[in-house]
């Protein structure tokens, strides 16, 4: 494996989809270079793209779901977390009706994921309380 290599990829931040090269040095993500010749970004990036390598290894990132019970917060498995969320959503919808819950999706998700949230909100739960960080 090469000590220094660049990996072409797409910036995760917004819907523009600028091309960038992730610099991998000694097995670690150390930086970003703009992807020259990319049809969308043509070798240019915004500040979010230039710093998008910083969050990957950040110690503040969640490594697993966390559930808070009272004052204590503990790491749990994904299955348990999803189970809790689904159960509680269902309980609220059963007790107070579909419009008592809302859904928020994100530009950091793919279009397909945003579509699925829309389906979940409208077809499964039966509400149109859905919004997007870019007001999509």
């Amino acid at each position: 494996m090469s000590d220094y290599r660049t990996v072409p990829t797409i910036c995760p931040y917004c819907g523009t989809g600028c091309g960038m090269l992730l610099e991998v040095f000694g097995g670690e993500l150390t930086g970003v270079l703009p992807w020259k010749g990319h049809p969308v970004s043509d070798g240019k990036l915004c500040i979010k793209g230039w710093t998008s390598h910083e969050f990957v290894g950040s110690p503040g990132r969640l490594a697993s779901p966390i559930i808070r019970r009272g004052d204590a917060a503990g790491e749990v498995s994904t299955d348990e977390a999803i189970g809790l969320v689904a159960g509680e959503l269902k309980r609220v919808v059963d007790e107070h009706g579909p419009d008592s819950v809302g859904f928020i999706c994100s530009a950091k998700c793919t279009n397909e994921e945003n579509y699925l949230v829309g389906k979940l909100a409208r077809a499964v739960v039966g509400t149109n309380n859905i919004d997007h960080c870019a007001r999509l």
Partner: peptide, 22 residues
């Protein structure tokens, strides 16, 4: 020990540090 040059990838040429293997 290494050559800093470019690797073809999907129509582009991206920086890469080559060693004797690659």
């Amino acid at each position: 020990d290494g050559v800093l040059a470019f690797r073809p990838e999907g129509g582009s040429h991206v920086p890469h540090l080559f060693n004797a293997d690659d």
